Simulated scan of single mutants.
Amino acid sequence: MRIRNLLSLFTVFLLSFIIAVSCTPSPQTSTSNNSTAIQLGFSAWPGWFPWQVAQEQKLFAANKVNVDLKWFDGYLDSINALRAGQLNANTQTLNDTISSVAAGSDQVIVLVNDNSTGNDKIIVREGINSIADLKGKKVAAEEGTVDHFLLLLGLKKAGLTQADIQFQPLETGAAAAAFVAGQVDAVGVFAPFTTRALSRPGSKELFSSKDFPGAIPDHLVVTRQLINERPQDVQSLVNTWFATLDFMKANPEKAYEIMAKRAGVSVAEYKDYDAGTKIFSLQENLQAFSPGKDMKSLSYAAGEISKFLVETGLIKQAPNLNQIFDDRFVKAYAAKQKS
């Protein structure tokens, strides 16, 4: 009897709920693509901190795009999130994007944020004075990422390979901590982790991305699905980036304050990173997307990096690079500025 009463009460509740729902007016918020927030990932790199400025100054909204900006403590985690479909867009290097495409992810570069011109470094302990001195030493870096790539470039220049060192694959923050603790002899890190690594007494920079111009460009990368389904939102993301650069130029101290806070360093320390990162202007974006025969051209750089990634075993097979770049959004922004 008790069970039957409970069932009767449940039936009444269910019918009441259905009636209430059917009588409730539809909400104004649509479930269409345009109302769904773009999941944009970013992580600790001076060329990507401006996205924090865009968020805090409400520049996404000003450019009519709904963005859920997601911070990742680990850069590799953001790459994996885009591959897994948890993000619609991410901030990535060219070599990491090529690696993702080689693994089957359909990703497209639509904007150049910057080039690394010294903020990616191989830092060594006292007593190591040349790349040749790395032979047999413990060297840490986040496997498969840009500083691993930089390390391999340096080793190749000196006639060495990864087999000649004791490579320690560690997440970038953990790699910096291991170096400071004296657990490894050298480390490959990017700013702001370079500051932490250089706090080890006697440590110094052995070489950096400055020694390999054009090798490490950084980008806004989106899924092809986002381009196909919401091209105007991709355009708005690109527009927001350039609006952010305008804000930073007009309000440098405010921008530094926002970016330094996100980086977890002082404003003075953050300003030191400026020389190591070349933020690309609109004109430099247009030039980068143009065909060329040196590393200033993205298509050329992609070909060279792809070959290198295969040679070093970071990818098994070079991907088709014909569709990895889409310059229409940068070009559309440039055309609008002229009109």
Rank of each mutant, 00 (worst) to 15 (best):
A103V: 00
L69S: 09
V108I: 15
I79R: 07
G104Y: 13
G85M: 10
I109F: 03
A102E: 03
T97L: 06
A81I: 08
D73E: 12
R83D: 04
D96L: 01
N80G: 10
V101M: 00
V112W: 06
F72H: 13
G85V: 07
R83Q: 11
L82S: 05
T93L: 11
Q92C: 13
L111V: 08
N63R: 00
A62V: 04
L76W: 08
S105C: 06
R83L: 07
I79F: 09
L94M: 15
Q107L: 01
L94F: 07
N88A: 07
E56N: 14
D96Y: 03
N66M: 08
T93D: 10
Q107W: 04
T91V: 13
I109C: 05
I109P: 02
N66W: 03
E56L: 15
A89I: 03
S78G: 15
N88M: 08
K58N: 15
D77C: 09
A102C: 09
A61E: 15
G104R: 11
S105K: 02
A61G: 12
V110L: 04
N95T: 00
W71Q: 12
V108Y: 02
D96G: 03
T91S: 12
I109D: 05
V112C: 05
A89R: 06
N113H: 14
N66H: 12
E56Q: 15
L111G: 03
T93A: 14
L76D: 12
F60Q: 05
L111I: 02
A81F: 11
F60W: 06
A102H: 09
V112M: 10
A89L: 01
N113R: 00
A103R: 10
A102L: 01
Q92A: 15
Y75H: 14
N90P: 13
A84F: 02
L59M: 08
V110I: 15
K64P: 09
N113L: 11
A81K: 10
I79N: 07
L87H: 04
L94V: 09
Q92L: 15
V65S: 04
V65C: 01
F60L: 00
F72C: 05
L82N: 05
S99Q: 13
T91H: 05
V65E: 04
S99L: 08
N95S: 09
L87Y: 03
A61M: 01
N113I: 00
N80W: 09
V101E: 02
A62L: 07
L69H: 06
T97N: 10
V101G: 02
S78D: 12
G74C: 06
N66I: 10
Q57D: 13
I79A: 12
A62S: 09
D106V: 04
D68Y: 01
L94E: 14
R83E: 08
L87V: 11
D73A: 14
N88L: 06
R83K: 10
I79D: 06
S78C: 13
G104W: 11
D77F: 07
K58T: 14
V101C: 07
N80L: 13
V67G: 01
S99W: 02
A61N: 11
G85D: 08
W71M: 12
N63C: 03
V108M: 00
S105H: 02
D106K: 04
